[in-house]
Design a protein around this nucleic acid. Structure first.
Lengths: 201, 201
DNA sequence: TCATCTAAATGACATTTGTCATACACAGTT
DNA sequence: AACTGTGTATGACAAATGTCATTTAGATGA
């Protein structure tokens, strides 16, 4: 039996995935969690061989959870199972010790297969996502541009961004302006959108 | 056996939900669809007794699909199963002939129960959502304000919104200004966000 | 018919935003 | 010590945006 930990915030989806995996004779769900910050604790007490993590979770996001889990329990194979095919996430995930990256758009049958392949030591990446990651290239934004965009995303005014980051308004405008040009969009709303969509946060 | 149609765009979630329901002895999935605009066709050929629709789907959204399905096959009990607990959606859904509204945040066990209760002629609404709908009150936006906000949501400039709706720029500014004041926010980005979040689209 | 209402438009105005040139401090290199 | 790059800041300016008073043209209704 392959011992699997399942972390996904939507209870119904989590339960459904558990049902799906339980139908496979060789897979056993040893932990079900709905928050990112409880992953490590649950893993330490249940010793899963494979951990399946969603990215969007309350507490902490799946990629952060993956990094922590990898540090604490390096023997556990971590797979990300998520809605978002942002190439930037794939890169971050791979740097966090993740061995597989599946999309919820993939057929349900692939999930069990992927788990078995992960157990066999393979790396699993959704092929369409891998292609996208290659063609996307790297994050063109600097650290500061990212942080400014992250705040701008919420719809704040320049003045609010400036005070929330302890920068001057002019500086904030500069970063936004540069980011807007780098991404070839026309205002900070589109810039924030695009950056988020690509996983460049 | 209760004949169920399942429409949900993420293949893995769809498959998992199907597995979950199939475990129940009295439920049979007669159709699985990943697009809103294929719901009616599938229903006409498989005659489900209950249809489970997600809101976010390619082709057309679940609420529109519900309205069409209700018109074509009034005997089929339609339930919305979705991520978004926007009270505005609940109202629209109820006006579209839907008998139940469940959130994916609810425990997995509730799904089968809800299906059986729908078959028994009950209306099923997630209690937390019903409360929210009551306390939220009504959509304060006029038709035009809504359409302008719907375009603004994508990050377009005023000029783009104006041409896309065949209105003058000044008029668009007026509508946005009124909407911004009605909602007590500070710019159209926040206004669009808030309106969407409340399901006031 | 007249009064009223609404959607749409206009124009004026202040504020916010995006762009750009420039400056300065600091760290790391050469 | 001089050079380079980066992060931060200023100030100036044009363009976009938000606000407001006012107008026009249809539609509705008494």
């Amino acid at each position: 039996m392959i011992r699997v930990l399942l972390a996904e915030d939507q209870a119904m989806v989590r339960g459904a995935l558990a049902a799906l995996l339980t139908l496979e004779g060789d897979i056993e769900i040893v932990a079900e969690i709905g928050r990112g910050d409880e992953v490590v604790k649950a893993a330490l007490s249940t010793h899963p061989e494979v951990a399946l993590l969603d990215i969007e979770m309350p507490g902490c996001d799946g990629i952060t959870a993956a990094a922590r889990l990898h540090a604490q329990l390096p023997g556990c194979r971590i797979m990300i199972l998520t809605t978002f095919g942002r190439p930037g996430y794939l890169r971050q995930a791979m740097e966090s010790g993740v061995v597989g990256f599946l999309l919820k758009d993939a057929p349900a049958t692939q999930l069990a297969t992927a788990i078995r392949r992960a157990m066999a030591g393979e790396r699993i990446v959704d092929p369409s996502l891998a292609m996208a990651a290659l063609s996307e290239g790297n994050n063109p934004l600097t650290e500061r541009e990212r942080s400014v965009l992250a705040v701008a995303k919420g719809g704040s005014s320049i003045a609010e961004i400036a005070s929330s980051l302890a920068l001057s308004e002019g500086t904030v405008r500069n970063y936004l302006s540069v980011a807007i040009q780098k991404m070839g969009v026309r205002n900070r709303i589109e810039a924030a959108r695009l950056a988020e969509q690509k996983g460049w946060l």
